[in-house]
Write a protein that binds this DNA or RNA. Structure first.
Lengths: 229, 229
DNA sequence: GACGATATTTAGCCGAGACTAACTCGTCGC
DNA sequence: GCGACGAGTTAGTCTCGGCTAAATATCGTC
């Protein structure tokens, strides 16, 4: 009788926000989130996760069947998407206005996202012109909580010869990001796969207007998501 | 033998940062910080303060004599001044670049100051041109931890007829700040006290180039700090 | 110099969120 | 259909930073 009619939003703790965000991302990627997966992502021990899942479940932010798995409730998803919006707006703001780069902005955003108010996020969004993508090409959810469904393929799965646009770079590792930027592989660039070696061998790309060649290994190629143009 | 030769800076908690900052401000204002004063400022119960003071003392961030009082150590003061720098840079940044105003910027800065990195603060400082004062006229400590000694008098203590510059507005209350701004009483403005009613009565000011008159009560006048020009 | 008012500390408690050690469930191989 | 193994949970502990109630110290007053 007390659970259905209101939400005073008593401000979630930093930890809770982190768990929700990770559950959201893992569900998105793998279809579900496991205790072990969450533990690995947050770098905590598995029993800590079990404990938190129980609390989140009581707060009705997740649906949790022990030994089975975990799923966000509507409210939990809302909170998670809000964190994603915060994170991506902050990343974009820092790169556009405060001399951060796509390879070092992640940790700063990771801390700020728990401290900013809704008001500040919306002010940043206004200054940025209500942007739709962050520096890595990830879509920014709207203030209402809607997020664009991405329909991208990893470059490793693209057909040879098809004209592609690089849309998303799915890694946070500074070294890789720096290397990719040096190679001109940033969101928005046009490219075509011109060759692919067998047995997960390197992929050859033809890049942009200059048609410059690039050869990259599959490990790196797997973080490059494209769409046909 | 373990205390004198290094400081790995294991990153203070949010609470510790808050306590140090409050102790710094109270010592600055009253000459010393009492348990009760700290408790009132942080809106926690007195025993919570006692407990924290013990911990801070063990961490050698304060010198603490039970029942007597508390004083920052060199290291504690350094940490406190760093928080002051953060707070004031953030306040100025938000007002200059993100459409905040001096009457609503304080709570936002209060949360952000615990989340930002040194790097972000220095980037903000660069964008702001290494500013020396925040929106309320408070001096911003340097990155090295030096803070300008202010030698100001409250307008209630100023002599009649002397030309003054309003330098600092020492309140955070939104209503008061809004009212003062409406009256044109913001840092930098020139003014002269033209009359003062007895028994802590209102003070009459002549303001800026226009010589406009303003009458304000002592309570408000006490937050206006000036220097002779 | 004793007394009462006020400030402060101690004692004991709680919840969040982490940990390790030990137990249990689910699943896969035979 | 039974075991074994790995993933997940329970049990028990810890620290931080709050709280209330009760004890104690300090200080101003007579």
């Amino acid at each position: 009788m007390q659970a259905t009619h209101r939400k005073p939003s008593p401000r979630l703790t930093r930890s809770v926000e982190d768990y929700l965000k990770v559950i959201y991302h893992l569900s998105d990627r793998d279809g579900c989130a496991s205790t072990g997966g969450i533990a690995a992502e947050l770098e905590v021990a598995a029993p800590s996760v079990s404990g938190m899942l129980k609390r989140l479940s009581e707060a009705e932010l997740i649906k949790y069947v022990p030994y089975r798995g975990v799923e966000l409730t509507r409210e939990g998803r809302k909170a998670a998407v809000k964190m994603v919006r915060r994170h991506r707006i902050i990343e974009l703001y820092l790169t556009k206005h405060l001399d951060y780069h796509w390879d070092n902005v992640h940790p700063e955003a990771e801390r700020l996202e728990h401290a900013v108010s809704d008001e500040l996020i919306e002010k940043m969004a206004v200054v940025l012109g209500n942007p739709r993508y962050d520096p890595h090409g990830d879509p920014i959810p709207t203030a209402a909580g809607e997020i664009e469904a991405t329909d991208l393929v990893p470059i490793t799965a693209a057909m040879i010869g098809v004209k592609l646009e690089l849309r998303q770079v799915a890694t946070q590792e500074p070294d890789r990001l720096r290397y990719l930027a040096e190679q001109g592989l940033t969101p928005g660039v046009r490219l075509t796969v011109t060759a692919r070696q067998p047995f997960n061998g390197p992929i050859t790309l033809s890049l942009g207007a200059s048609a410059a060649k690039r050869v990259i290994g599959t490990e790196l190629a797997n973080v490059l998501w494209c769409r046909e143009v």
